[in-house]
């Protein structure tokens, strides 16, 4: 039975950490632009993708 006394608080702690993580993500605006975040990972920061033609 003592196993439970460890397991239940451990489960709760882990769950609570997940919940806090979710709140933090929401507060820091990570859900504001879901599509943008998915596309931004494709951007290569080394050089702009702007066409030369558009540049001028």
């Amino acid at each position: 039975m003592t196993a439970l006394l460890w397991l239940i608080p451990a489960a709760l702690m882990l769950g609570a950490m997940g919940l806090l993580g979710f709140f933090w993500a929401m507060k820091s605006g990570q859900y504001d632009d879901l599509d943008g975040a998915a596309e931004r990972i494709l951007i290569d920061d080394d050089g702009p993708i702007v066409d030369d033609e558009d540049e001028r």
Partner: peptide, 28 residues
């Protein structure tokens, strides 16, 4: 609607004199 658009718009604007920051929200 794509990554190329984000780059084109944000970089294109940031190259303008005086523009400090341009941020596009693709969802909205």
């Amino acid at each position: 609607h794509c990554a190329a658009c984000i780059v084109k718009i944000e970089d294109g604007l940031q190259k303008l004199d005086g523009v400090k920051r341009a941020r596009l929200n693709l969802s909205t």
